[in-house]
C-alpha cells in the first residue's frame, strides 16, 4: 500500500471526474489569482521600497472604477462557481430508481452491511462495477459519516433518521472506506474497504456467501411477528392502508402529499401520527423502541419488495 508521495486520490466512480473537473478549475483559478496578488505585492514592495527611485505622485487612496470592477468581477466569478457546484450537487441528489439497494448500519466503531439477498459484511462492502448502488444508512448510536474518497461521496449517518448515499463505480479494485464524522474513542479505526467487482464476479461472490434469508424475507417475517399484517393485510377487519405498490409513489395525507420513500415508511412505523394517509383514522400505535435500526431496514425492504412486482415509477 505504501506508494510514497501521493498527490491524486483514486478516481473510481462516475462522480469522481465531475468533481475533479470543478476542483482543478478552482485550483487553477485560486492559484492564478493568489499568485497574481502575491506577485503584485512583491513587485510593489520592491519597486516602492523606501529610498527606491520610483515615481510617486500623491495617490488618491481610492479609485471608483477599480473598486466597481473588482466587486462585480468577484461577484460574477462567485456566481459561476456556485452555479456549477450546485448544478452537479442537485443532479447527484437524484438516485436512479433501478439502483441496487444495500443496507448499512453504523455503530461505534464498525460498519455493518447487508445485501438484498441477506448476505452480511462487516467493515467491507462488495459492489458490482457499472451499476448504481444505493446504501441506505442508519445509525445505532451517534452520528457517523460514510466516506469513500475514491468515489468522492460522503453522507452523514444520523441516529433517528434514514439517509442514503449512492454511487456508480467505474473501476474494479479495493477502495478505502472511512468514518468521517468524529464518533468517539476508536473513530480512526472505523474504516474498511469497498471492493468493486465485475457484475458476474459479484454474482458469484454473493452465491459463495453464507446463505441467509433475504432482507425482504426477513422483513416479511417481522411484518407478521409484530402484528402489522393484522391490519395492513388484504383480508384484515381493521381498515389500514394497502401497502403493495406504494413504494416511491406519492401518498395523499391529511397535511399534503408525501412520497412513500424509506424515510416515510420508517417515520410511519415509529411516529404513525406524523403523516396519516388521507381517509384513514390515526389508530396505529407507535413501534418506537420495539424495532431496531436493522429491523426497520428489513421492514422497509419488505414493503419495497411489494412494489417491485409492478413497474417501478421512473
Amino acid at each position: 500500500m505504501n506508494e510514497g508521495i501521493r498527490i491524486f486520490p483514486d478516481s473510481a466512480s462516475t462522480f469522481a471526474p465531475q468533481v475533479d473537473l470543478l476542483f482543478f478549475t478552482l485550483v487553477a483559478f485560486a492559484g492564478a489569482l493568489g499568485l497574481f496578488l502575491t506577485g503584485l505585492v512583491i513587485v510593489y514592495a520592491a519597486r516602492y521600497r523606501r529610498n527606491a527611485p520610483a515615481a510617486r505622485h500623491r495617490a488618491r487612496g481610492r479609485s471608483l472604477p477599480f473598486e466597481i470592477a473588482w466587486t462585480s468581477a468577484t461577484t460574477i466569478v462567485a456566481a459561476i462557481i456556485f452555479a456549477w457546484g450546485a448544478a452537479l450537487f442537485l443532479r447527484d441528489e437524484r438516485i436512479p430508481s433501478d439502483a441496487l439497494v444495500v443496507n448499512g448500519i453504523a455503530k461505534q466503531w464498525m460498519w455493518k452491511f447487508r445485501h438484498p439477498g441477506g448476505q452480511r459484511e462487516i467493515n467491507a462492502l462488495h459492489v458490482p462495477r457499472g451499476e448504481p448502488v444505493v446504501v441506505r444508512l442508519g445509525s445505532q448510536d451517534v452520528i457517523h459519516s460514510m466516506f469513500v474518497p475514491a468515489f468522492r461521496v460522503k453522507q452523514d449517518v444520523v441516529p433517528g433518521r434514514s439517509t442514503e448515499l449512492w454511487f456508480e463505480a467505474t473501476k474494479t479494485g479495493k477502495f478505502r472506506l472511512f468514518c468521517a464524522e468524529y464518533c468517539g474513542t476508536e473513530h480512526s479505526k472505523m474504516t474498511g474497504w469497498i471492493t468493486v467487482m465485475e457484475p458476474e464476479d459479484y454474482a458469484d461472490w454473493l452465491d459463495r456467501q453464507a446463505q441467509a434469508p433475504s432482507m425482504a424475507e426477513e422483513g416479511e417475517a417481522l411484518f407478521r411477528a409484530l402484528g402489522c399484517s393484522g391490519c395492513h393485510g388484504a383480508s384484515s377487519e381493521i381498515r389500514a392502508p394497502e401497502l403493495a405498490g406504494i413504494f416511491s409513489r406519492p401518498v395523499a395525507t391529511e397535511t399534503g402529499t408525501v412520497t412513500a420513500d424509506a424515510t416515510y415508511i420508517r417515520d410511519s412505523i415509529l411516529q404513525p401520527d406524523k403523516h396519516v394517509a388521507a381517509g384513514y383514522r390515526a389508530v396505529m400505535p407507535s413501534f418506537d423502541g420495539l424495532v431496531s435500526e436493522a429491523e426497520l431496514q428489513a421492514l422497509v425492504a419488505y414493503i419495497r419488495s411489494l412494489s417491485l412486482d409492478e413497474e417501478v415509477p421512473q
Binding site: A30, W84, D92, K154
Partner: peptide
C-alpha cells in the same frame, strides 16, 4: 502584515472550494 495578507488570501481562496457544494461533499471533515 504581509504574511497575513498572503496566508489570508490563500486561506480565503480555499473557502471557495468548500462553499462549492459538490466539492465540499468530498472535502468536508477532511
Amino acid at each position: 502584515a504581509l504574511t497575513f495578507l498572503f496566508l489570508f488570501t490563500f486561506g480565503g481562496l480555499a473557502g471557495l472550494f468548500l462553499a462549492a457544494l459538490v466539492v465540499d461533499v468530498h472535502l468536508h471533515d477532511t
